[in-house]
């Protein structure tokens, strides 16, 4: 069978989601953000909430998420995405509101908003992209940076006596009564991509059913910040990040 006989519309089994705009993404080659954007776009379309979904984009690499996923978006001040999402979901209860935040936005400057929004049990989805580094500003140490990890501001590796321990904010959110679903996933292999999509779908369904706050952490790579090739970054993540940030559901209710 020739190639042109296979490449026909009736044989298509996978294509880019329609909600993902066909513009060039500003992310570095191999960035996990692209995969997560794709999954969010797929899940919103599959749940049929294109007209009701409102995203809140953060400050960080994902700040331009509103240019890439074709639903309604609000751009929040740095770290304030959960506060803005609270307003959006309370004022328009029929909407499905989600935040899309990195580790700088969610676990550094926005820790207070994150914890209180989850504690109030707002009906929102928080998508937390944890790559253990400040990617947009050039690879500085984040609260989630691993012990011993070299960054621009910890060139000899993160030290406990100087910088403290990595912050596992998802584990903190798990303890709060307001959260209904807390999970940690990754997107480095096809199987993990499928699991993350299922987790995102469940989280959005929880928001539609007004069950409380759902948190989906995606352990990701920042190959530019880590100074590695994309495939080496994935290997490094599997070797080192999963020890501190083990994958799986932390809370199901």
């Amino acid at each position: 069978m020739e190639l042109q006989d296979i490449i026909r519309p009736e044989n298509k089994v996978y294509a880019a989601p329609e909600l993902l705009d066909q513009v060039h993404m500003h992310y570095c080659p191999g960035c996990s953000h692209g995969v997560i954007h794709k999954l969010v776009a797929e899940v919103i379309a599959e749940l049929g909430i294109t007209e009701r979904a409102v995203g809140v984009s953060p400050v960080g690499c994902a700040v331009f998420a509103y240019n890439y996923i074709d639903c309604d978006w609000i751009e929040a001040a740095h770290g304030r995405a959960p506060a803005v999402a609270t307003a959006a979901s309370r004022l328009w209860p029929e909407n499905v509101v989600f935040t899309y935040q990195g580790d700088g936005d969610m676990s550094a400057i926005g820790t207070a908003e994150t914890i209180h929004a989850a504690n109030r049990g707002e009906n929102i989805v928080m998508i937390f992209v944890n790559n253990a580094i400040y990617g947009m500003t050039g690879g500085q140490m984040a609260p989630t940076t691993l012990l011993g990890q070299k960054t621009a501001t910890s060139p000899y590796g993160r030290r406990v006596d100087l910088n403290g321990y990595p912050l596992e904010i998802t584990n903190l959110l798990k303890e709060l009564d307001g959260t209904c679903y807390v999970t940690r996933q990754s997107v480095h292999t096809p199987a993990n991509v499928r699991k993350t999509k299922a987790a995102l779908k469940k989280a959005f369904q929880n928001a539609m059913e007004k069950k409380g706050t759902s948190v989906v952490e995606v352990v990701s790579t920042c190959n530019s910040g880590w100074k590695m090739s994309p495939e080496k970054a994935n290997e490094w993540m599997a070797q080192h990040m999963f020890e501190k940030y083990p994958l799986g559901d932390l809370k199901l209710s």
Binding site: M1, D5, I6, I7, R8, N11, K12, V13, Y14, A15, A16, P17, L20, M25, Y27, P29, G30, C31, S32, H33, G34, V35, K38, V187, H188, T189, P190, V193, R194
Partner: peptide, 13 residues
């Protein structure tokens, strides 16, 4: 699935 830029389409027979 792993493509970050969603540039791959797959066909199967």
């Amino acid at each position: 699935l792993v493509c970050p830029d969603a540039c791959i389409e797959v066909y199967r027979v």
